[in-house]
Write a protein that binds this DNA or RNA. Structure first.
Lengths: 154, 154
DNA sequence: ATTTGTGCAAAACCTTTGCACTGGG
DNA sequence: CCCAGTGCAAAGGTTTTGCACAAAT
């Protein structure tokens, strides 16, 4: 298991390639992210590593994860945004999410619904019972020319 | 517009049907949720109503929205959970989300990818430029018999 | 009258930030 | 050496909670 592409040696290389300083904290955090691919939060990683590395602080975990994301070595699993948002429409439907304005727009398309329904009807998941699903389509309202990317809220 | 199924009268009925007391706060908040279907956060609703109803507190908005969700009159647009979570796998893929354990599991299926890719290639969105999308499949690990629904975290 | 809902303020929670210190290049 | 990275503690922002008061059935 040592050489499964996330031994320290190859991680060092990856960090260095991106011009990032190689620190023991980054190696530990990066390896933890790769090794248990449980899609952890910063907190979860902190819990995992703190026994073996009691000196690493939670703030460093946060900072390091952001650094890895910036370097393209990890990805944030984006939810709509931090706020929990509500919908009075209780039936299953797809949402368009505008990355500029944070608007959420209902989207219904018989073809898409049909496609997915049919897929889920046919598909067997081993050891997983599906209750529902959500499809979020990200993009921007309007056309490609106005590509300013604000990160506003509210 | 007064009678578009979210006038106070029909909202009163809906609340009463669920055994909820009809209060002016609930009517205002519920109507706001329906009227501007912008998929708001609690904060957004509060902003919208506070000028006309300065006495309604933010805490009430939170509580009322939760009440509506419990009663099945609204839905939380669930993100994975409140925490921002990370993934070392940077390519597009689908996630299975276990509603019992909050685990996130990678899911790849050539058929599904093909289906969606083909759909997006073919589909024209009017006034919306798609950058990417995410499919989250909710359910529980294991089978239907162990249907305990914890809301744990960490 | 009783029970449920509301408003306030405080607490809890998660995440970010400022700054002095440390350590890698 | 120098600058980027780290740790601490404090601040920031969002959501939840406890409790006394108000309102609905």
């Amino acid at each position: 298991m040592a050489n499964k592409n996330f031994d320290f040696q190859s991680l060092k290389v990856k960090l260095a390639e991106r011009g990032l300083k190689v620190t023991s904290q980054r190696l530990v955090i990066f390896q933890c992210l790769l090794k248990y691919n449980e899609h952890p939060s910063a907190e979860m990683i902190f819990e995992r590593i703190k026994d073996d590395h009691p000196s690493i602080s939670l703030a460093t975990v946060y900072k390091t994860l952001d650094t890895l994301v910036e370097a393209g070595l990890a990805k944030k699993i984006e939810s709509w945004d931090a706020l929990k948002r509500f919908d009075a429409k209780t039936e299953q439907h797809t949402h368009l999410f505008c990355i500029n304005t944070n608007e959420i727009i209902d989207f219904e398309d018989a073809e898409l619904s049909g496609l997915l329904e049919e897929y889920f009807k046919r598909k067997e998941f081993k050891n997983f019972t599906v209750t529902d699903f959500q499809l979020q389509i990200n993009g921007q309202i309007g056309d490609k020319s106005k590509s300013i990317k604000l990160k506003q809220l509210k």
